[in-house]
Design a protein around this nucleic acid. Structure first.
Length: 293
DNA sequence: AATTGTATCAACCGCTAGTAT
DNA sequence: AATACTAGCGGTTGATACAAT
């Protein structure tokens, strides 16, 4: 029963990749795309296991990777996203176009931890070092019993919104026009506007057509919608059906607001019998104000 | 110049959720 | 329904580069 193993482990190379191996992998993926990693090594003539090929491609060879140092902006974004998500590196990376989870993880461990410690902040709890330890071990998660201060949540929301905005530019790099848009992102966003309400456009309600609200849901909402595309009105109403609190203007899970899939950041809003009971909510107000419930 | 210590990061390992058989 | 496997994730390790002595 089942299938054959993904690779002959006895006949696979390990360790650093050679230029030739890189070229083979690049050439193969250019010709055939990212298909089945299991069969790729053999098809590409590589003595590597599929897992290794996948990692090499994702972390190093992918053409859309952003090389070079992290910017101060990215630093702050990572800190804020980490405050909200904990060590969910892939989720954080998803909000930082051109960066990989591995890269961010390494960067966190080598730079940001130290940076936070020098600020007197615990890198795991994001609380002042002298402060009482959080009741839960590890990082504060959206479902954790040690939620961040309201201001931190709001900051994190803003950061994620900005990140989502950045991701939008990146996600659309398939075509040249979009690539251009991505490359000019910095020109058009010299200072990230983090003061955004990102609540209403994620699952746009047919009824919520207030122009004030529409104008207050700027780039980030578009980004959220992009990362969780719901293009048609039918889809929107479907979303309303799936998220009745949102459609009715009631509080909505912060994670969902930020554009995470329900299974991504807050599984509990999907699995908890009464998810509203143990999450913090983000109530959008007019004029970009927020209330943390 | 040689040695030792430290920082960085690519790659590996082990685990889990989802899926194919 | 049970089993076997894949893809993806986060933690850890090891090789290399660089800095200090």
């Amino acid at each position: 029963m089942g299938r054959s193993p993904c690779c002959e482990k006895a006949h696979t190379n390990k360790g650093a990749w050679t230029k030739e191996e890189d070229q083979r992998l690049i050439a193969y993926i250019r010709a055939h795309g990212e298909g089945c990693w299991r069969t790729l090594p053999k098809a590409a003539g590589l003595l590597r296991c599929g897992k290794s090929c996948r990692l090499r491609w994702i972390n190093y060879l992918r053409p859309d990777l952003k090389r070079g140092n992290f910017t101060e902006e990215e630093d702050e974004l990572i800190i804020k996203l980490h405050a909200m998500l904990g060590n969910k590196w892939s989720l954080i990376a998803g909000r930082l176009p051109g960066r990989t989870d591995n890269e961010i993880k390494n960067y966190w461990n080598t730079h940001i931890k130290r940076k936070l410690l020098s600020r007197g902040v615990d890198p795991q709890t994001h609380r002042p070092l002298g402060a009482a330890t959080a009741p839960t071990a590890g990082h504060p998660s959206p479902t954790s019993a040690a939620p961040l201060e309201a201001s931190s949540i709001t900051d994190a929301a803003k950061a994620a919104a900005a990140a989502a905005s950045m991701k939008t530019a990146s996600d659309s790099t398939e075509d040249a026009g979009s690539r251009s848009a991505a490359s000019t992102y910095d020109e058009h966003h010299p200072g990230l506007n983090l003061d955004l309400s990102i609540s209403l456009a994620f699952y746009p309600s047919k009824q919520s057509s207030s122009s004030t609200e529409a104008s207050s849901t700027t780039t980030a909402t578009t980004a959220a919608a992009t990362s969780n595309p719901r293009p048609s009105p039918a889809a929107a109403s479907e979303a309303d059906a799936a998220h009745p609190p949102f459609a009715q203007g009631r509080p909505v899970c912060l994670c969902c607001h930020l554009g995470f899939q329900r299974t991504e950041a807050c599984g509990s809003c999907q699995t908890a019998p009464n998810p509203h009971a143990n999450l913090r909510y983000f109530i959008p107000l007019q004029g970009g104000q927020h209330v943390i419930d």
